[in-house]
């Protein structure tokens, strides 16, 4: 029989399974190394190299001259196109994000309210999400076409021919036209997420609101929206990130034109890197670094703000 000096022994059930989670170094490496190699070689190294490049003026053979922060100075204080691109991207992001989330919520509510054939509608409404920007961009370029595009056709048909536009050719409408296309592609996504969140809501709450003789608007504002708040915030952040990085659709539909009316930071980076008659990757790298920094800062800020808000409300 063992001696028992009754000393307290801290035991922790959470740790009980730790031992089984150990494995030999070789096994561990075998599991992790491919992912780490990919990460280091094709994510970490490129990012660091882009940051390094941003302080360089690069020649066509990759031979660089160190210029310090000169590129950044040029971007921030002298590059008008950059600021135009920033303002376009900002408009696109802010308006787009609000419309995206609100629209997705409204569509979800439409289905949630018991639409006939709601499963079929849900599947159809989601289809654009699965399509590439190339497909979506080309189709909408055609829909916006001045001569034979559907939108002008409809305007003429209903007698509003005076409103016909070269939608993508007019600097006043081009950005909005691209934005509408982007919304069209992504609304289904937001709808599905909102719908999932709605279905997860306890039925009693909505029932209680019914008993309180709540109008649908009041119900939306005071009951549904607050309860979906975490989901909506999540979508906001996602939508925000996506739009800050907007490239494909703009490039396909307008190439940033007319007159920089739809130039986004991303298309500008691409143009400076691969479309200008220079081989200097340093300058576009600096833009990319600057912009990525802003995106990450914004996202962290938003997550922080929202998290506080969330804590207050729940």
């Amino acid at each position: 029989m063992t001696a028992s000096e009754l000393q307290p022994v801290r035991t922790d059930d959470g740790l009980a399974s730790q031992g089984a989670r150990q494995t030999s170094r070789a096994t561990l490496l075998a599991f992790v190394v491919p992912a780490v190699a990919i990460f280091v070689l094709f994510t970490l190294y490129p990012v660091l190299r882009t940051i390094w490049n941003s302080t360089q003026t690069l020649g066509p053979m990759g031979n660089g001259t160190f210029v310090g922060l000169q590129n950044f100075e040029e971007i921030l204080f002298r590059d008008k196109t950059f600021w135009k691109a920033v303002s376009n991207t900002a408009i696109f992001t802010i308006v787009g994000t609000i419309a995206d989330v609100a629209g997705g919520l409204l569509l979800a509510l439409c289905l949630y309210a018991g639409a006939p054939m709601s499963r079929t509608l849900r599947v159809i409404w989601f289809t654009p999400v699965l399509m590439s920007y190339v497909v979506v961009g080309i189709i909408w370029t055609w829909l916006y076409d001045y001569d034979w595009g559907l939108i002008n056709h409809i305007l003429r048909w209903i007698g509003l021919g005076a409103l016909e536009q070269s939608w993508l050719g007019d600097p006043n409408t081009a950005l909005w036209a691209v934005l509408v296309t982007h919304l069209w592609k992504w609304l289904g996504f937001n709808m599905i997420i909102c719908l999932a969140a709605l279905s997860a809501l306890p039925k009693e709450v909505l029932g209680a609101a019914e008993l309180d003789a709540c109008g649908w608007w009041a119900k939306l504002v005071y009951v549904i929206t607050p309860m979906l708040w975490p989901t909506l915030l999540n979508l906001t952040v996602l939508s925000f990130i996506g739009k800050m990085m907007m490239f494909d659709l703009v490039w396909i539909m307008t190439g940033g034109g007319p007159l920089w009316a739809t130039e986004t930071v991303s298309t500008y980076v691409y143009k400076r890197a691969f479309n200008w008659n220079t081989f200097n990757l340093g300058y576009p790298s600096a833009i990319a670094v600057l912009w990525s920094g802003m995106i990450i800062a914004f996202v962290l800020l938003m997550m922080r703000l929202f998290r506080q808000r969330e804590r207050l409300e729940f």
């Binding site: 490129p46 882009t50 990757l281």
Partner: peptide, 17 residues
């Protein structure tokens, strides 16, 4: 953290690499 990396930050030097 790779999820946070904007593609523009990656692509310029990925091209070189």
């Amino acid at each position: 953290s790779g999820m946070m990396v904007p593609p523009q930050l990656l692509i310029l030097s990925l091209f070189q690499i």
